[in-house]
Design a protein around this nucleic acid. Sequence first.
DNA 1: AGCACGCCGACT
DNA 2: GTCGGCGTGCTC
Length: 726
Amino acid sequence: MIYHQLALNVPLYPLLTYAYPTTLPAGTRVAVRFRNRLVAAIVWESDIQPEIDLSKIRPIENILSDGWQLPADWRALLSFTARYYHYPLGQAVMAALPKGLRQPKAVPLPKQEHIYSLNALGRIQPAPPARYHKQNALWQRLLAAPATLHQLKTIHTQASQYLKQWQQQNWIEASHIPACGSIPTSLHQLNQQQQQASAEVQTKCGQFAPFLLYGITGSGKTEVYFDIMANIMQQGKQVLFLLPEINLTPQLMQRVRQRFPHTVTTVLHSQTAAGQRTTNYLQAALGQAALVIGTRLAIFTPMPNLGLIVVDEEHDYSFKQESELRYQARDLAVWRARQAACPVVLGSATPSLESWYKTRHGDYQLLQLSERAHSNAQLPQIHLLDIRRLPLDNGISDIIKQKLQTNVARGGLSMVYLNRRGFAPALFCDACGHTFGCPNCSAKLVLHQHAGQLRCHHCDFHQPIPPSCPECGNQDLTAVGQGTQRIEEYLQHLLPSARILRVDRDSTAHRQDWSEIYHTIMRKEVDVLVGTQMLAKGHDFPHLNLVVVLNADNSLYSADFRAPERLFAELMQVSGRAGRADCTGEVWVQTRQPEHKVYQALAAQNYVTFATAELAERQELGMPPFSYMAAIRADAHTMHEAQQLLRQVQQGIEQQHALPANVNVFGPVPMLMARLAGYERAQVFLESKNRRDLHHSISLWQNWLLHLEKSNPHTRWLIDVDPLEM
DNA sequence: AGCACGCCGACT
DNA sequence: GTCGGCGTGCTC
Ligand SMILES: [Zn+2]
Ligand SMILES: [Zn+2]
């Protein structure tokens, strides 16, 4: 018997040993019995010396992927990912596979699509008589240009039958459809900066080279990506294009299809149906698709000819998975580019301070687009409106009211942005001061007027709006603050003739809603948009010329050291919506702290100044990117239990004096959101300037946690490397 | 994580 | 006497 190390979906750090009569190559998908259930597994290593009792080792039941293995570079990526994020390798491997490949069932490989063309003999044949009009149409189509079965089926569903006939006559030939296909020249003429950026990346083709493409909103980053992608794909290489889910819109896909009409493109995101995702994954893995577009999970797609990775909106937090395997796809993209020896382009109008810092140190090469791509498009004018002494009506000052009225009157499109859905963020008792909190979370319940409910935005708790205060019985309950619903209602009252549309998670609950909303806006059937982040990202409305930002100050009070960076990026993004194409835009930001660095940098529309100042502050405090961090978290029904496990580990390590001197430990402290979905959450931060020592310390903590978890059975724990949550 | 095993309270 | 509550421990 030959023994193999297998990756299975079990929460154990070591791999499991199974036997097979012959040596199976690493990367083979197999089915095995685990606890007497048939599950899928991936061969990680063959011909090993078992470290456990031979009697416990069971046989591999059968081999699932005949003739295809998960490639060595993919396995190296997962080994690295599991090690770096301190996550069980078996579970990491399974998280990187689409559902179809996690099942103990064989999956047929996608057949490479054929393209059919009439050969010389075929071309001199008479066309089928016109009375057989479907047959004739097929023939005419093939006469005009080669076509795929898929295309021919749109002419006649029985196309394959006739193709077979004609193939037997030796009139047509079938050939594999090329992954890349011909790429037509772009309709967009790149400006000088764009050309230069594209050229810089292309000179590094075939070698590891990380770039940060810093381009202001509207500077045409996408055209630059497309230009580089076209070049790389024409060399027969594959391109991986990552972007936040919210930006993966039908409009974006439309642009891709227009620019690369003959390129086999595959889309991978969490909304793709499971079966389709497996097919797409395999298409990329077999090199049949030249272009892979997807959200963070697409970083794990095997690509045999990877020639370029693009990460658009690289500052976006959605690249970090905040559960289970807590990977940062942007960072893994850089790792993969190094492994594949290819360029990687991270793009943003407000780069993450981590990436910006790396350009300062020459780790990443900086590419800048400082002009709007369309020379007639102006930057918006951003105004800060100090509301400390101004009367507000539903959170809106007179000046803003007038701005909105004027813009509606002259037929412009306005947007009122606030990052709070619902009617009001809190309900308050005037008599005793009682507020309604979520019983499961440390958060206030949000008033949803239309639904007649108080809802928690962090868990699924909800209750009917109470008629009176449960503390004192008072019936005068006041809705405090503004949510999008309330603003929508108020604006309808203020601007009775205006067509107002609210866009937030509540108004776009169904998949279709967004595209309907989008088209309504594009048909200019809306005067005022009210919405949250959804509205700020991913969609351009060329005729939008007034943006109003309400209640942004809330984020300034956060204890999270990344809050200013986040707010700045968010406000720059919202502001960038105003005045694209050929109309000048105006942005008005209501604030009580106009002197704050975030607002000052925003008004000046100066990312560089902001980043420089913010980095200086981070350096002073020894925060990332000037140090590396990891969070060890524990949760339990009581904060005491959660902190107890962490304290026990801390004491154990202290007694052994095992912690490297250059690793600092903070905590245990409650998380900023201390209670979530019924669990009290505590954490310890490990911080060091030395990555090796940090990781050594994490492993130390991990081993102690594995040892002490038995005596704390009600406490769960996890490790978050390079954490974003605080 | 599941899923068995096992040891005590409240049912027929 | 048994049914089932979940605390404990293992998984190749
Ligand atoms: Zn009260
Ligand atoms: Zn809650």
